[in-house]
Design a protein around this nucleic acid. Structure first.
Length: 308
DNA sequence: TTCCAGGGGTAGA
DNA sequence: TCTACCCATGGA
């Protein structure tokens, strides 16, 4: 069997915090085993090989990656680089923690090393998944993503029932009517345009990962994608490690109204005003804020309620 | 049945 | 730049 590989993270790091940073660990093709603390992924490598791998905590200093099949050197290196990206192992949040230490509602961030969002292996996958969170409940997002994976994903050789996330080309070859049958509704033409644009080279999603570019430039590129508006662009910026914009959705409005405006109706402007002082860490402050004063983020509160 | 969801695109002002 | 309106589907 393949040897487990340790992938070091820039301190501070907490495996559990990355997994539970947002809902991605619940979306296909990932499988999360809470008891064992193991995330199982299915990846389609550039060699064309579809592989499964498990990822677990590396003693709060990184992750332990184990492919479930023997891989060549090139495939192994690609898989390691992919997992490093997914867990944002290189992200430095020291400046954010220094600010958070002085704010009681964010003081839990440093001890739990919160701030890294679990990423997908490709920006394409993250863009599609964020698109599937728009104007739909979370249960619907899980259903749509699972449908896309089972319908368009390439199967694992060892287990045909498990598939990788679809390649852009596989979706691009599809039709709008097919996507509608999968339940995507009015998102169908957006996804089709996105996939075809990626295949045609009109949208260069990998360029969004480049760290040197100004955030507003990356944001403009995101907003130019079909089906990606202010909420989705802000969410994707956070996933990319840029925290200047808050993805204002119905949940953000609900939280800010309840905890900062005594239940009065609020909009995007008010949500941004509340967290304006956090500057380039605005969306981290919003997302990891301990609204109820129970040392608990909204995500943790949600998971406690839903039993996840 | 009605409302709305981890909104986006478009037209018109 | 801001607002009104439409968009599919399923859950509450």
């Amino acid at each position: 069997m393949p040897t487990p590989t340790f992938l070091p993270a820039r301190p501070l790091f907490n495996f559990h915090s990355v997994i539970h940073s947002h809902g991605w660990y619940q979306l296909a093709p990932h499988q999360w085993d809470e008891e064992r603390g193991v995330l199982t992924i299915v990846e389609r490598l550039t060699s064309g090989r579809v592989v499964s791998a498990s990822i677990r905590d590396g003693d709060h200093s990184g992750v332990i990656l184990e492919a479930q099949a023997r891989l060549g050197k090139r495939d192994s290196q690609e898989l390691a680089a992919t997992v490093s990206w997914m867990f944002a192992l290189d992200l430095d949040l020291g400046e954010f923690y220094a600010l958070a230490d002085a704010e009681p509602r964010l003081a839990h961030c440093r001890p739990k090393a919160m701030g890294r969002y679990l990423r997908s292996s490709t920006v394409w996958e993250d863009v599609v998944k964020v698109m599937m969170t728009t104007n739909i409940q979370w249960g619907g997002t899980k259903r749509l993503v699972a449908s896309l994976v089972s319908h368009f994903g390439e199967p694992l050789a060892a287990d045909g029932a498990r598939r990788a996330f679809p390649q852009p080309a596989a979706v691009a070859r599809s039709r709008e009517s097919t996507l509608r049958k999968l339940g995507l509704g009015y998102r169908s033409p957006y996804l089709l345009q996105l996939a075809r644009g990626v295949v045609a080279g009109k949208f260069d999603l990998d360029r969004l990962k480049e760290a040197g570019r100004p955030t507003d430039e990356v944001r403009r590129d995101l907003l130019a994608l079909p089906g990606i508006g202010p909420y989705a662009a802000a969410t994707l910026l956070g996933i990319l490690g840029r925290f200047d914009y808050i993805g204002v959705d119905s949940e953000a409005v609900r939280l800010v109204s309840k905890w900062f405006y005594e239940g009065a109706p609020v909009g995007e402007k008010e949500v941004n005003a509340v967290f304006a002082r956090w500057g380039k860490y605005k969306s981290l402050a919003y997302w990891f804020w301990d609204y109820e004063g129970k040392q608990q983020t909204p995500m943790e509160a949600y998971e406690a309620r839903s039993g996840d």
